[in-house]
Amino acid sequence: MEYIVETNQLTKRFGKEIAVDRVDMRIPKGEIYGFLGPNGAGKTTTIRMLLGLMKPSFGSVQVFQKFLNEDRLNILKKVGSLVENPSYYPHLTAYENLEALRKVYGIPKSSITEVLELVRLSDVGNKKVKGFSLGMKQRLGIASALLHNPELLILDEPTNGLDPSGIIEIRNLIKRLPAERGITILISSHLLSEIDQIATTVGVLNKGHLIFQDTIERMREYSKQKVLLSVSDREHAWQSLVAAGIKAELHNGMISLKEKSDEKVAQAVRSLVHNDFSIYRVEEEKGSLEGIFLEMTTEEKSL
């Protein structure tokens, strides 16, 4: 598979504290990679290293299959980024901010109006950025990242501070980019619901460790529903199930089945009926991604 971003044993140490610990990140071409992790997990630190803003303490970064420390300039020509809070020059207008960047990239002026249009800032293009609201600054940040038509877009918490319609707008914009422009996107967030709605691949970082990295579908599988049985005399019912070799747990007055395939559920029901327990209800509990995420990050075990 062609990886756009590939890190090997990427590590960053601040004094004694290890902020990023031996991370092997792989981002396939054309994917939207959701980079998940709670506050302080090391997402921003990793992203800084991907952009060469910080040197890794150990390990290497490859972008477009070239090593960052060797080919930084060529790589950055094709990377757009928004790291943490949006960066801007307060004394310049939105247009002028982009113009200052455009001069460095040496690209045509038309790209400025284009990206302003894209993030819907055309109306306020001539307003000083210091008078912008948080959401407008965020859009400008995204516009700056898209200005030079990058092949890889790195967005660190891009929906921070946006109102619901703004979030949807940015989300739709991000979703469109891979198809329309062939862009690969890395988007970090501490909100799973956010990632769930746009990512195609997910990496979960916790305390500097990459504890999960796979497609969103695989992630969803972990959150597959539980099957719960409500029965009479549940103590004995549960014991009989366990005696019959069926993996089950007693939970909040319900029996929860660990194995969820149709066959296993049928087997459990059959066994209960056979032993004269009354089954009141068989229900599925919608396991949420949030639950899985919390489980992953609190238990600190690798999946």
Binding site: L73, L76, N85, P86, S87, Y89, L101, V104, Y105, S144
Partner: peptide, 18 residues
């Protein structure tokens, strides 16, 4: 000053410049 103010350094150095 304007680089220090709102993440200007970050933005500047993430561009293809040394």
């Amino acid at each position: 000053r304007y680089e220090h103010q709102a993440g200007g350094w970050k933005q500047l150095l993430a561009m293809p410049v040394t």
